[in-house]
Amino acid sequence: MGATSIIARRLKNGHVQYGWSGNGGYFKNVGNRLLWWYQFPKDVEYLFSLGETALIGQIGSENGGYGWFDTHSPTGEPFSVGDTEREIFSELDFVDYGYFYDIDHK
């Protein structure tokens, strides 16, 4: 396994959208990518529109032009939606890291 991570966000209706964001979910990898590339609500919306991913890449990287390490690797699976934050850990076993984007844009 290898430091499995999930990303999640609270939706305006109060529900929580969540799913796999890959292995290697350490802050120095996934956390930094989220801080560098996904600070603004429109960018977070874009990221979640891609569905679950084995690697978080730069914005637009799924269209080419970036090295493999900076390119999204979507799984084709949509994110799940739940009622509470507790549910974000319900679909994957042994989640090591979780990254949550709340309605206050943090």
Results as ranks from 00 to 15, higher is better:
62 E>M: 06
89 F>D: 02
15 H>N: 13
50 L>N: 04
11 L>T: 08
78 P>A: 12
55 L>S: 03
43 D>V: 10
57 G>V: 05
24 G>W: 14
28 K>H: 14
19 G>S: 08
84 T>W: 05
100 F>W: 13
47 L>P: 03
32 N>Y: 14
75 T>M: 07
25 G>H: 01
16 V>R: 00
14 G>M: 04
36 W>V: 15
93 D>R: 14
51 G>D: 12
62 E>F: 13
52 E>R: 06
82 G>Y: 02
99 Y>R: 05
69 F>E: 06
105 H>Y: 11
90 S>A: 12
47 L>R: 03
98 G>T: 06
15 H>P: 00
77 E>V: 08
39 Q>I: 12
8 A>I: 05
64 G>R: 14
69 F>H: 09
30 V>P: 00
88 I>V: 15
20 W>R: 03
58 Q>S: 12
1 M>L: 05
8 A>T: 06
50 L>W: 02
45 E>T: 14
7 I>P: 00
95 V>N: 07
67 G>V: 15
10 R>E: 15
99 Y>F: 10
23 N>W: 09
86 R>E: 10
4 T>S: 04
54 A>N: 14
96 D>R: 06
106 K>A: 15
106 K>M: 12
63 N>V: 08
83 D>C: 00
69 F>T: 06
48 F>S: 07
21 S>G: 10
14 G>W: 00
31 G>W: 00
14 G>S: 01
22 G>Q: 05
71 T>D: 00
7 I>Y: 08
2 G>T: 13
102 D>H: 04
71 T>L: 04
76 G>S: 05
52 E>Y: 01
5 S>N: 06
52 E>T: 04
66 Y>S: 07
43 D>C: 09
48 F>L: 11
48 F>I: 12
89 F>K: 01
44 V>D: 00
40 F>N: 07
89 F>G: 02
26 Y>H: 13
13 N>M: 05
73 S>W: 09
17 Q>S: 01
18 Y>R: 08
86 R>W: 00
15 H>L: 01
92 L>T: 02
25 G>K: 03
27 F>D: 15
52 E>G: 00
9 R>H: 07
103 I>Q: 11
20 W>N: 03
63 N>G: 12
66 Y>K: 14
20 W>L: 12
51 G>Q: 12
51 G>M: 03
55 L>P: 01
100 F>L: 08
1 M>G: 07
16 V>D: 03
73 S>L: 15
98 G>C: 07
80 S>P: 00
34 L>H: 01
21 S>I: 13
27 F>K: 08
106 K>G: 09
68 W>Q: 02
38 Y>L: 05
59 I>T: 09
91 E>V: 02
94 F>C: 06
9 R>S: 01
50 L>K: 13
93 D>L: 10
36 W>T: 15
91 E>R: 09
93 D>W: 13
43 D>W: 11
47 L>H: 05
26 Y>N: 09
96 D>T: 08
17 Q>C: 06
13 N>I: 06
41 P>K: 15
89 F>M: 02
53 T>A: 10
25 G>W: 07
37 W>K: 06
2 G>N: 14
45 E>M: 11
92 L>S: 00
15 H>T: 12
37 W>T: 02
97 Y>I: 03
26 Y>K: 13
72 H>R: 11
99 Y>N: 00
58 Q>F: 08
11 L>M: 15
34 L>F: 05
30 V>Q: 11
19 G>R: 04
11 L>R: 15
72 H>G: 11
